[in-house]
Amino acid sequence: MAGTSGGFDWTRLLLWAVLLGLAGFFLAPLYVMLATSFKSMDEIREGSLLALPHLPTFEAWTKAWSSACTGTDCNGLQPFFWNSVWMVIPAVAVSTVLGAINGYVLTQWKFRGSETLFALMLFGVFMPLQVILLPMSQVLGYLGLASSIWGLTLVHVLCGLPSTTLFFRNYYAALPNELIKAAMLDGAGFWRIFWRIVLPLSTPILVVTLIWQFTQIWNDFLFGVVFSSTDSKPLMVGLNNLANTSSSVKEYNVDMAAAMIAGLPTLFVYIVAGKYFVRGLTAGAVKG
């Protein structure tokens, strides 16, 4: 066998070494953040950046959560975190459900102009977000939702709809038409077919869409800083304010703990459901 000597596969060893080296390089910033967040400021000043904490402490995490200053407010990231939670849950749920219905209609209940409508919706996937800031602010003001969590939720639903529609449309294009036709012959209507047949077959693409939407909305900064007020700012805006708040001593451990708090929800989602992500993305890639 090529690359072997005396029964030992040197090619495989080299491959593993390269992969482990790249993984270590990629994970090094995360390690530095995590290790620094458990150190005291004295240990940070006196020790090495890569050294493990000698006396791990949660003091920086506690301060980042409940008492760190984000501008003139010193209540930590806690209010920003809950603002993001109340925004993300309905935005992800609504945009996913609407995307599923759109994909179902555009593949199984086609009408004249449906392909043109889908092509127009695709513009929303590639459109720069900065383009919609002014018209969206005018719409939110007209609806009375400006500078509110519900206004931010609406923005994310509308901006996420093209992506969710694309995901479900491509997935549903690979479903056998015979299932739908057989259900129609048995007297099933639009909604019954959707809830009883199509949706139970949609688990892979549902997971993909939920992960995608959650990540995009949770990590958003642009909409959060433009369309929110003091009481409705999401977590990423609070993190930015905390990191840029000037004080007599720069507390790197608090900044790192705050960054970890902001990143833990998305990290948890990918750890729990990440294996379904690629599987769902490729499920509808062979047709449509």
Rank of each mutant, 00 (worst) to 15 (best):
S66A: 08
S67K: 14
S67A: 14
A68F: 13
C69R: 08
C69I: 12
T70H: 06
T70F: 01
G71W: 04
G71E: 07
T72L: 05
T72V: 03
N75A: 15
L77R: 10
Q78H: 13
Q78K: 15
Q78R: 15
P79W: 07
F80D: 09
F80H: 11
F81N: 11
W82T: 05
W82S: 05
W82P: 06
W82F: 14
N83P: 08
N83G: 09
N83W: 08
W86F: 09
W86N: 10
M87V: 13
M87C: 10
M87L: 15
M87W: 11
V88S: 15
P90E: 00
A91Q: 12
A91T: 13
V92L: 11
A93Q: 09
A93D: 12
V94I: 15
T96W: 08
V97D: 11
V97W: 06
V97M: 15
L98M: 10
G99W: 04
A100K: 00
I101P: 13
N102T: 10
N102A: 13
G103R: 07
Y104Q: 08
V105G: 09
L106K: 00
T107I: 00
T107S: 07
K110P: 15
F111P: 03
F111E: 12
F111A: 14
G113A: 04
S114H: 13
S114V: 11
E115N: 15
E115Y: 15
L117W: 11
L117R: 04
F118T: 13
A119Y: 14
A119L: 15
A119R: 13
L120P: 02
L120T: 05
L120G: 14
L120Y: 14
M121L: 11
M121F: 06
L122Q: 01
L122N: 04
L122I: 10
L122S: 08
L122K: 06
F123K: 02
F123W: 01
V125G: 06
F126S: 06
M127L: 10
M127V: 10
M127E: 07
P128I: 10
L129E: 12
L129T: 12
Q130N: 13
Q130W: 09
Q130G: 12
V131I: 12
V131W: 02
V131D: 03
V131G: 09
V131E: 03
L133K: 03
L133R: 09
L134N: 07
P135W: 01
M136T: 00
M136C: 04
S137I: 02
Y142C: 02
L143C: 07
G144N: 05
A146S: 09
S147R: 01
S147T: 02
S147Q: 11
S147K: 08
S147G: 10
I149A: 06
I149G: 05
L152M: 11
T153R: 01
T153P: 07
L154F: 14
H156C: 00
H156I: 02
V157G: 07
L158E: 06
L158A: 14
C159N: 10
G160R: 11
G160S: 14
L161S: 12
L161W: 05
P162D: 11
P162I: 05
P162L: 01
S163E: 03
S163F: 12
S163Q: 09
S163W: 14
T164I: 04
T164Q: 11
T164C: 04
T165K: 02
T165I: 04
T165H: 02
L166E: 02
F167Q: 06
R169N: 08
R169L: 05
N170P: 04
Y171G: 05
Y172A: 00
A173Y: 09
A173F: 08
A174H: 08
A174C: 10
E178W: 09
E178G: 14
